[in-house]
Amino acid sequence: MEAVVARGLTYRYQPGGPLVLKDIDFHVSRGEIAAVTGLSGCGKSTLCYCICGAVHHNRDGVMTGQVLLNGKNIRELRAASLALEVGMVFQDPDTQLFSPTVEDEIAFAPENLCLPPAQIRERVEQALDLLGLAALREANPYRLSGGEKHLVALAAVLALDPPVLVLDEVMSQLDQAGKKRVAAALKRLRDMGKAVIAVEHNLEAVSFADRLLVMEKGELLSCGRTAELLADREFMEARGLIYDPPGL
């Protein structure tokens, strides 16, 4: 059974409005990292929202087609129980951090899952360790720098330990060390059998992804092997996704 399946997925913001997602079909297996790329406004973030159910339960738009998470149709899941199937790191860190300390922020998800305190402690320590945040444990998330906020938001979702992870551009504000730590964390999640979907503009940052989903104007153009797609410079350049400045 695939971890994520999208079948004939379409989405529009208003009934009768233009399609933001056009007939998207793809699947991501357990133990696989899929990167999603495309020009801004191509529907990447919307696709993320659809997969994690945020669209279905919280937005006014119209979604048709199907999204299955571990075989379960997201329409049939209660909004809160979706968190047991999928974890999502949103693009804007400021609207997803609300706790007084980094440690509390990370403990929030396992506390919601009713884990015993010892297990919560274990998950918090693992997440802090994996993303190199131990020194910021007592810091106020609201006062951190942009990149640090993203790391905390990711750590908070890692502690939820969902089978599917969706990340919307978490690497963009990270320094090299931060990018490496996130990459190492994602590879470890893959080895643990998780399915990871990561939206990213910077293709170097996700070159370790198993597959690359290329989107254009709401359509999914390709979902092949990352290495093969990246090697096809003509295709990528025509999509405006890579660019060689003239005269260099």
Partner: peptide, 16 residues
């Protein structure tokens, strides 16, 4: 401050 965050390669070139 971080003007390229959220911009794709094509828009980065426009900005550049």
């Amino acid at each position: 401050d971080e003007p390229t965050v959220g911009l794709d390669a094509y828009r980065k070139r426009l900005l550049e």
